[in-house]
């Protein structure tokens, strides 16, 4: 395997967590993603930006095989996690998704208590050996998601009763609880107000210490604020990928520049 090969885009020598090569996605006859190559680094926030319908969310869903649940969707090419092909026939998507967690656009807490929402993942994956250990995982996840202080007195209350920002942080806690290595976030702030958005963005920055985070966003400011690396998608193609600072100040591709300056989008 060519794990350690440096990419021509000048990525530094941090560990590469996930690697995508020549990825093609088809929805029925529609060619949604064309020839995408991306390396996701460990302990880094990578942002996918681009105009709506450019395929950034579709590509994100390839990274933990969420597209498997859509019948007409077909993925070609190679995506690896720690050097192992996640589309290999031997791979159980269930195991994969425990390692590559996901947070969705709209907060989607289960209609259960806050505790059960967070404990759901550890329970199905058998991560805790007893009630005490489960309590510990729940508490730690809620702490990491920066929501513990707000909910610690009402863990039995339904998760659907929280405010939008709290719900999204609860969903992040839920995703963290399974102990993922990569966390995929699909426009996690698009349904939130500015204050809740700030809280979640702050959280994302903290999460970088432990996970590699991939975030899809339609807000360029957000990408600039939270990410270290940025990938710009346009019409199903990956146009440019590199250091966030470079993409936003001195992009190579004229299309990237047009998007950044607001001429397309």
């Amino acid at each position: 395997m060519n794990d350690m090969r440096m990419t021509e885009r000048g990525v530094d020598s941090k560990n590469i967590k996930m690697k995508a090569r020549k990825v093609q996605v088809f929805y029925g006859t529609n060619h949604a993603i064309k020839d995408v190559d991306v390396d996701i680094e460990d302990k880094t926030v990578t942002a996918f930006i681009g105009p709506s319908g450019c395929g950034k969310s579709t590509f994100l869903r390839c990274l933990n095989r969420m597209n498997d649940t859509i019948d007409i969707c077909r993925v070609e090419g190679e995506i690896t996690l720690d050097g192992e092909d996640i589309y290999d026939r031997k791979v159980d998507p269930v195991q994969l998704r425990a390692k590559v967690g996901m947070v969705f656009q709209k907060p989607n807490p289960f209609p259960k208590s806050i505790y059960d929402n967070v404990a759901y993942g550890p329970r199905i994956h058998g991560l805790a050996r007893g009630k005490a250990e489960l309590d510990e995982i729940v508490e730690k996840s809620l702490r990491r998601a920066a929501i513990w202080n707000e909910v610690k007195d009402r863990l039995d209350a339904p998760g659907t009763g929280l405010s939008g920002g709290q719900q999204q942080r609860l969903c992040i806690a839920r995703a963290i609880a399974t102990g993922p290595e990569v966390l995929l976030m699909d426009e996690p702030c698009s349904a939130l107000d500015p204050i809740a958005t700030a809280q979640v963005e702050e959280l994302i920055d903290e999460l970088r210490e432990r996970f590699s985070v991939v975030i899809v966003t339609h807000s360029m400011q957000q990408a600039a604020r939270v990410s270290q690396k940025t990938a710009f998608f346009h019409l199903g193609n990956l146009v440019e990928y590199g250091e966030t600072s470079k993409i936003f100040t001195n992009p190579d591709d004229p299309r990237t520049e047009s998007y950044i300056t607001g001429r397309i989008g």
Partner: peptide, 15 residues
């Protein structure tokens, strides 16, 4: 039952 709940569960690695 909304699809988002199913997605949430599959996203956590549930069968």
């Amino acid at each position: 039952v909304p699809q988002s709940l199913r997605d949430g569960s599959y996203g956590l690695g549930a069968t």
